[in-house]
Simulated scan of single mutants.
Amino acid sequence: MAAQKGKDLLLKVDSNGSGSFTTVAGLRARAIAFNAETVDVTHQESAGQWRELLAGAGVKSARLSGSGIFKDEESDALIRSYVFDGTIRDWQVVVPDFGVVEGAFQITSFELTGRHDGEVAFEIALESAGALSFDAD
């Protein structure tokens, strides 16, 4: 994957369950991490006492995170309602020259910060809540 502009990595949400995704407003930084737990099946007779792992047996998960500012009251209210209600929604992350990851996520962390001489900013983290799909570019 060649170098890409960070602003081209998009975080989107299906806010009403219709299958239509809208870019989350005001995000200045975004990231996605994929995780796969391992299942250790090492036993006394493992070759050379080396650890053995069971392929495909661990739990898979993904974490989306971002930070930025709210550009309007609608995006502020939407995210706030997801946090307080524990809402699970379909989200997308669009990574240029890589693909689109889509699936159900829940907001697991939401922080507001502000300086006396600046705007109120937020940081958000979402954890996968089911199977994810991936469509390569």
Rank of each mutant, 00 (worst) to 15 (best):
M1R: 10
A2P: 12
A3E: 13
L10H: 08
L10T: 09
L11N: 01
V13A: 08
V13H: 06
V13D: 03
D14N: 06
D14H: 04
S15R: 13
F21K: 08
V24T: 07
V24D: 03
A25N: 08
G26T: 04
L27N: 03
R28T: 11
A29E: 15
A29W: 08
A29N: 15
R30E: 07
A33I: 06
A36M: 10
A36Y: 03
E37C: 00
E37G: 06
T38C: 02
H43N: 08
Q44K: 09
Q49T: 09
W50G: 13
L54Q: 05
G58H: 02
V59K: 05
K60G: 07
K60M: 08
S61N: 04
S61V: 01
R63G: 05
L64E: 05
L64G: 00
S67H: 02
G68R: 02
K71N: 14
K71I: 14
K71S: 12
D72T: 05
D72M: 05
E73R: 12
E74C: 11
E74R: 10
D76Y: 15
R80E: 09
S81L: 05
F84E: 15
D90G: 03
W91E: 02
V94A: 04
P96I: 06
G99S: 06
V101F: 10
Q106I: 13
T108N: 00
S109D: 04
S109V: 00
T113A: 12
T113I: 01
H116G: 12
A125N: 01
L126W: 10
L126A: 07
G130S: 04
G130A: 04
G130R: 00
A131M: 15
L132M: 10
D135M: 14
